[in-house]
Design a protein around this nucleic acid. Structure first.
Lengths: 144, 144
DNA sequence: TCTGTTTCGCATGACTTTATCCTAATTCTC
DNA sequence: GAGAATTAGGATAAAGTCATGCGAAACAGA
């Protein structure tokens, strides 16, 4: 049943981790007034795996998207106002957003110094794909 | 060394398989005049793993993006003119393009019948992300 | 200073994607 | 019809992502 050629892989436009991250950030954004919120509460509210979500929250904190405080009453909160956090920032903090590093004509098709035409055209396309993510803030998604 | 929390996962804006597929399609597009081209030639030209690429080409053929012929002189070629194949079509043939099925507010945040506001906003965003892929043809990328 | 709460960080296991290999099935050429 | 070339397809291995679990570190409050 594994790796059936008829069942294509899932293209993670967002990886599972990034999806968790966005959900968590949105939850924190909607509850911004309440200050710090514990990872377990977020996980329960989203129905996400608690341990893994906690790890993702830590990662977001380390990348400066969230702030975190340990100990009783501690938890996580947005490091900046929701208007100042783009969807792209969240995704990039968690996954390494990588448009294909190598030329689309193949590794041997062109070199970076003297890129082929398809190279430039592909870069332009990836920019157009990523831009909406950069232009959309958490506040936009939450709707404030 | 595995799963270090400091080394974020790669976000496959394109999965590896989709990347191979696009490269292969572009190669076939540029060599359209030559008729059928063997999988081994494509793999060598791109520096891609031959066996896996062959499997991906077969998948593209089954999905109707490529046509294939067996036996000596056989190989693969575009099933339609390069202007009639979108980048999105290639990616979708290989990976299951799936925006998050569940609401961004969390599985328990809203139900499909009565979707929340973030739900609609997220759908709008994913549309904007995918559109450039749909609007760009293989011919556009190759530059004809 | 003790105790409970909560983040931090590593080790490990389960599952998915990527890649390899081998054996058919098909088709051209001689 | 024999033999070589080439796609088709399944079984299996390797690598990566996703998820779990546990102990340590930090912190607040009594």
């Amino acid at each position: 049943m594994r790796n059936r050629i008829n069942t294509p892989a899932r293209l993670p436009l967002l990886s599972q981790t990034a999806e968790h991250a966005l959900r968590a950030i949105l939850y924190l954004g909607r509850n911004q007034g309440r200050g710090l919120i514990a990872a377990t509460e977020v996980a329960e509210a989203l129905g996400a795996p608690p341990n893994y979500l906690a790890k993702t929250l830590r990662l977001l904190a380390r990348k400066g998207v969230l702030r975190s405080v340990r100990g009783p009453g501690g938890g996580f909160a947005l490091a900046r106002p929701a208007t100042a956090i783009s969807a792209a920032a969240v995704v990039e903090a968690v996954d390494e957003v990588s448009a294909p590093a190598n030329c689309l004509l193949g590794n041997r098709g062109c070199d970076p110094q003297n890129p082929c035409e398809a190279h430039a055209r592909w870069e332009e396309l990836t920019r157009r794909v990523l831009r909406p993510m950069e232009d959309t803030s958490i506040a936009d998604l939450v709707g404030e």
